[in-house]
Every structure is written in structure tokens, then in C-alpha cells.
Design a binder for these strands. Structure first.
Lengths: 328, 328
DNA sequence: CTGAAAGCGCTTACAG
DNA sequence: CTGAAAGCGCTTACAG
């Protein structure tokens, strides 16, 4: 099976050289109007499209961004996926989507991106061994952690300011007369969960208030089960701070199941502001992650690194905001 | 910027020819154990990985599948996306993700897949002008419509048996003493919505029962607003058949908002069986789409067409099943 | 502005 | 089983 039409075929039909055909499809190249028209007409007739592989091979540049994700059950991530896809589409880049089911991203999942010499990589919602990622440094492929910060790594990361969010949420609850709080965490090895907790505890401690932690896993089911367990032990606090919205929805459903009134008996605050948190069944008070800005920041960094690689690491944090609804 | 390490570098270090290096990475090629070991050792030392572009250029085959999606707000589609990604990963294929916001997929969105000479294409949840797709036929690139059937097109499609599902759902409601029904449709130009309606109406008509249709749009908000409007007009039927789950959840919330009891005053049945329909806040009775089988069927077809292209069209329909919960 | 030619990093007959 | 060589479809100096 051979590729149908190449630049040579077009050149022959148009009566020009293959180089001229190439120039028509290469932005910024010098071609006369007349040549361009002849080439375009011939290309149209033959159905010619430049072979992206040959292009990448010769320029050693690709128009592909690798996007690595762990789970998409949390609606936050599909939203992130589409925003990246749309942003990059405008810039002429395509998205190679890498998904992993396991908790840690596997080396092979990521190494495929090396084979494609992707222009850049975004790793989302993911923990993984760092030595795999060294290969990207070696190959001067820019990489950013989105919504995750790896300690001791020198990779660029873009997050919302989780520490400050935790603080503001704590103060908000205290202003409402908080007595004691429960923090329902996400996976304990994620920076997001840890920093939200740290900011929250910090302000609580300043006010000599207590916070018990229950470790959960960022899933609806996890939130639901965790809260059921808490209720069984009759440890109902005056407020739940839940590390993400999808767990907070599970929290709300568990409380409803047990006939516990929100916010009268207990307040609930989530994190992310996913679409569902605004649904009438939930009306969840939550923290809005500034996805748009986070995506924009990521795209800008990646683009500048594609133009001129520096490998500079930084941890960008963008402020979000509290969204007040009915649960706190 | 030049690519760091190529087969020639490895060959030199290993003391073999570049062809031998190539053979080590090409499955099924003849290489002695000794050569293989030398090459692998040298490759390891240098951090060599075969350039996928050069490979594709010479073999005129790629290991990329293009996956085209319209919206991911409906959790059904992220689920589909990950299943495809995982299935193809096992087979050594990567997913190029194409997303469109507009109602119709744009030609340019799809044409990029032609430039990459993808091995196959899956179009999901999407309407588009057919003449763009002719290019895939010309280039002998297999294409399947997933969860969508285009009339008058001769492309392969994989759906759930929507017609029969509509029939079974109608009969199920009739057995419960249905008097009159409302069908809340999705976008009217989608085969899925149309066929679910057709099966539903068919059985209703056989029983001399009436069905009013309200056109909605497959979104939560659409379902919510539509039902609110129905209630305002005091046209509450004895059952709602809603064309997908996410609209059905909107339906449930709208009814709850108005203090209408489900299933006592009105029954609700959805379609898809997304994870959320099992949540305690909803407990939606619905129709399960056999995603796993649908994905498997799609993958199998694509793979066989990659091996030997026939371009044969067919409309595969897989049976789903009713999931009884609390709303009907 | 244009064409002839070299070369990107591979695969794959071909000869040995 | 191995190496030398041709060639995939492009881009890009180079000369004109």
C-alpha cells in the first residue's frame, strides 16, 4: 500500500519542481502567485495533502502535544482535556491522549511520547516515578505538571493556589461559627490534597480549632463511604471540608441518606466547582479552580519552551475563588 | 535542534550495521541473539528510541487512531474515550484526540487526521457533512461511526439497538399501567434519538397509547428546562422517557424542585446507564448501553480493516438491557 | 522566485 | 544472519 499522492505528483501536473510544491505548503516561503495557483489547482485535483511524517522527520519538529491523564471519572478532567484540545487546535497542534488506569503512570505509557518526538507534554492528575521523566529533559521536550506539584522535581507546574484556598475556606467556616471540622482528603500522595489540608489546618490552629482527617480517594464512592463511616461512629463535626467536588457530592448523598440536614446540622464545602456542583440536587458551596487561566498559563509556557527550550522549572499558582451556594 | 540519537549512533557503538539496529526494533526480523544484545546494550547506554516518523514514512503505516468527539459534558463519552484508549494501547496504538465545540464537526478538524495518515478513525457523537469523509475512503482509511448512524452513508457504524430498546421500555411502562407518555428527545438530527423514539412510539401505538414529544438537546440543562416548561403547562404525563441519562437527571431535579414525587406521580426512564444514574440522589431506572461490547466491536473492525482494507459498510447493533432502579 | 540535490532516520529487498 | 544501498516524502541551503 503506497501513499496516494505526493509532492512530486503535484509538481508534475502543475509543471513546476517538487521544491516549489513544498514551498506553497511551507508558511513564509517565497513563491510567486502564479506558481502558488498552479500548485494549488493541481493539488486540489489530485487530493494532495503534505505528509506530516516526512515533514516532522526533516524539521525534527512535531505539532503534537502529549496529554497524560489518570482518571476521567472526575468531570474536572474531561473539562481540562477539552480546553487543552481547543487551545492547541487554534495553534495548529494536535493532542495525543495517553490514559492510565493504574494509580501510577507507567513508564511505557509515557515513553511512547518520546517515540513521537512530541513538541510538549502535559501530565495531569498523576503520580509517577520521576526517572522516567528525565528522558524528556535529555531530549529537551518541555513538560508541565497540571494540577499537581511534585516535590523535589525540577519540572514546571501549574496549580491553583491550594494553600491559600484552604486558608480562605477555614476562615469562611470560622466566621460562621465553626466548632470542629473534618477534612476528607484525596489520595494522600497528591500535592493538591496535602496543600488544601495544610492551609485549612493552619487557620484552624490559629483559632484553636480542631480538625480530624479521614483519608479518602477523590472518588464519589470514596466520599460516600467515608462519610457513612463517620456517621456510624457518631463523629459528626460542624463542617466537612472535602478535597474535591465529586467526593463532596458523595458526602452530600450520604448525609441525605441518613437524614442529616445540610447546612443546618453540618456544613459541606467542596473543591473544583465542577458543573454538577451547581445542580439543584446539590447546590454545593465550593472553591472554583480557575481552569481557563491554568490552561492558558500552561499553553503559554509550553509554547515559549517549544520556541526556545530553557528547561526552567517553576511552580505557578493561580488564585481561585469561593463559590457560595447552599451547603455552607 | 537535531534529534539526539539515531540508529547509526547505536550501530557505531555496538559495532554492527545500521540495518542490524533496525532489525532489533522490528518485530519478526532475523537477528542473532548476540547482535541483539550488543544493540540493546548500546541503545540503553545512549538512550536510543526509534523515530516513529521515519518508521511511518517508510512503511506508510501509522500506529495512530483518530478519535473524534463533540462534547464530553455527558459522562458517557469520557467513558468511551478511556475504553478506546485502553483497548488500543494494548494493541500498540495511540489515540489522536480531536474535539469540536460546534454542533457540526468542521472539515479542518478531521482533515488533520488525513495529514497524519492515521490507521483508522472513530467518530463519536457527531454530525458532519459527508463529503469531507470521502477523503478517508479515497485514502483507504477505515472509519467507524460510534453511537451514531448516518443515513445514506456507506460507513461502518456501531450502535446499541436503539429501536428495540425503545420498544422494551415502552412495554415495561405499559405493564406498569402507563396512560400517556412524554418523550424528551435529544438533538433531532441524531439517529440515536430518532430510533429510540421510533421503537417507543411503535409499541405505544400498538396499545393505542399516546406519546407527546418535546425536543431537547442531550444536556442536563436542556432536560431541566424542558420539564419545567412541561410542568408549567400542567401537562404532566404518567411517564417520561428521556433520550439520555444526563437529561433524565435534569428531569429528576426539575420534578424534585416542583415537589413532584417520582415514581408515584410520574415515572422517569433514562438511557445510557452512566455512573451517576446509580447515585443515591437519583437511582434512575435506565437502559444500559453495552459500551464494552460496542468498543470491542469497533476495535475488531478497525483492526481487520487495517490489516486488509475492504471499505465494507455495515450497521452493527448490539442489545443493551433495562436497569431497574427507583424511578420507574 | 525557482530548480537540482542533499539529507532527515528509518525499512527492506538484495547479495553474500 | 548481516551489511551496503535504495528510497519513503518532505525541507532547505545553494546556485542561478
Amino acid at each position: 500500500m503506497k501513499s496516494p499522492i505526493n509532492a512530486k505528483d503535484v509538481a508534475k501536473l502543475a509543471g513546476v519542481s517538487q521544491s516549489s510544491v513544498s514551498r506553497v505548503y511551507f508558511e513564509g516561503a517565497n513563491v510567486s502567485k502564479k506558481t502558488r495557483q498552479k500548485v494549488l489547482a493541481a493539488a486540489e485535483e489530485l487530493g494532495y495533502r503534505p505528509n506530516e511524517f516526512a515533514r516532522s522527520l526533516i524539521t525534527n519538529r512535531t505539532k503534537i502535544i502529549g496529554l497524560v491523564m489518570k482518571g476521567v471519572k472526575n468531570p474536572f478532567y474531561p473539562q481540562v482535556l477539552t480546553q487543552f484540545t481547543n487551545s492547541f487546535k487554534k495553534l495548529g497542534y494536535s493532542i495525543l491522549f495517553v490514559h492510565t488506569n493504574s494509580n501510577e503512570i507507567q513508564a511505557e505509557d509515557v515513553e511512547i511520547l518520546l517515540n513521537y518526538h512530541v513538541a510538549g507534554v502535559i501530565i495531569t492528575d498523576a503520580t509517577m516515578s520521576l526517572n522516567v521523566l528525565e528522558n524528556f529533559k535529555v531530549n529537551r521536550i518541555p513538560l508541565v505538571f497540571f494540577n499537581r506539584k511534585l516535590s523535589q522535581s525540577n519540572f514546571y507546574s501549574v496549580c491553583c493556589n491550594n494553600l491559600n484556598a484552604g486558608r480562605v475556606i477555614a476562615q469562611y467556616l470560622i466566621n460562621q461559627g465553626l466548632e470542629d471540622a473534618v477534612y476528607i482528603s484525596g489520595n494522600e500522595n497528591t500535592s493538591t490534597s496535602l496543600e488544601r489540608e495544610r492551609g485549612f489546618r493552619e487557620v484552624l490552629a490559629q483559632n484553636e480549632l480542631n480538625c480530624t482527617k479521614y483519608v479518602s480517594d477523590y472518588t464519589y464512592e470514596g466520599g460516600y463511604e467515608t462519610v457513612l463511616k463517620i456517621i456510624m461512629n457518631k463523629n459528626l463535626p460542624s463542617a466537612f471540608f472535602v478535597a474535591n467536588d465529586i467526593m463532596a457530592l458523595g458526602t452530600l448523598d450520604a448525609l441525605r441518606k441518613q437524614g442529616i440536614q445540610v447546612p443546618e446540622q453540618v456544613k459541606v464545602i467542596g473543591f473544583d466547582n465542577i458543573g454538577m456542583s451547581a445542580w439543584p440536587a446539590y447546590e454545593l458551596t465550593t472553591w472554583e479552580q480557575p481552569i481557563e487561566e491554568m490552561v492558558e498559563k500552561t499553553v503559554t509556557y509550553l509554547l515559549s519552551e517549544i520556541v526556545e527550550y530553557t528547561g526552567l522549572a517553576d511552580a505557578v499558582e493561580i488564585e481561585g475563588m469561593l463559590i457560595e451556594r447552599e451547603t455552607a
